[in-house]
Amino acid sequence: MQNIWTIAKREYKHYFISPIAYALAAGVLFMLGVAFAFLLGQSTQMALYGGGSAPDLTQLNGFFAFLLVFIVPALTMRLVADETRMGTIELILTSPISDFELVAGKWLGGLLFVATLIGITLIYPITLNFMVDPGVDYRVLLTSYLGLIFIAASFLALGTGISALFSNQLAAFLVTFVVVLTLWWLVGLPAELMPKAGAFLRYLEVNSHYAFTFNAGSIHLSDIVYFLSLIAVGIFTGAMALESRRWR
C-alpha cells in the first residue's frame, strides 16, 4: 500500500508541472462553465414565463463523463510509456516494488488528478444552492458524482494498462481513445441489430451503467461490479505488460 501511495504522489505532482494536464483542465472547466451558464440561462428564461424548474446539474455531470472519453487518454498516455522511452522504467522495475503496485500507483495518481478536477466542479452545485429555493437535491448529485468517479477510475485504469503496452505516447493515446470511445458509444450501435448478443453489448456500454442509475440517484450493485471489473482489467493488463517485458 505504502508503495502505491509513493508512486501515486509523484504522478499527482507531475500533473501540476505538465502543460498537457493544465491545458486539459482548463479546457474541461471552460466547457463545463459554459454549459453551466447555459443551463442557468435556460432556467431563468423559463422562470420568466412562469414555468420551468431549477437547472438539472446531473446533465452537467453527464457532459463531464462524455468529456472524460477525450481527456483520460491524454492523461494516461505518458504514465508508463514515457518511462519506457526515457529508460527510467529500469530503476523503477529494479526497486523493490511489485509490478501491480507500480501500475496501481500510477492509476491512483491519475485518479487523484481527475478527482481534483471533479472537486473543482463542485463550485456549480454550491453556487446554485444559493440561487434556488429550497436548494439543490444533494442526494441525486451525490450518486451522480460517485458514478462520475467510477467512470473516471475505469477509463484511467484502462489507459494506464494500455500505456504499459507501449513505449510511444501517441500509440498509447490512440489505443486508449479507441477502447474508451468503443465502451462509451460504439459498442451500443450493433446492439440494435443483434437481438441475442445485443443485451451483452449493451451491458458493456459505460453509459448504461451511469445515465439512468448513478446519474438518476440510484446505486446498483451490478453497476459497481461493472466498473470494478473494468478497473481490474486495466490494472491487470498493465501488470502483465510489465511482467512480460522481463521475459523478452
Binding site: 505504502q2 508503495n3 509513493t6 508512486i7 509523484r10 507531475h14 508541472i17 526515457m86 529508460g87 527510467t88 522504467i89 529500469e90 530503476l91 523503477i92 529494479t94 526497486s95 523493490p96 516494488i97
Partner: peptide, 27 residues
C-alpha cells in the same frame, strides 16, 4: 541491491532532493 544502469535514467523534471526522497520512500 543498489543499481546504477549505464544510461543513468533519472527524472529530469524533478528536483535532486525530491527524486532521492522518492527513491528512498520506495525502499
Amino acid at each position: 541491491i543498489g543499481y546504477l544502469p549505464e544510461t543513468v535514467p533519472l527524472y529530469t523534471e524533478m528536483v535532486v532532493f525530491d527524486y532521492l526522497k522518492f527513491m528512498a520512500d520506495l525502499r
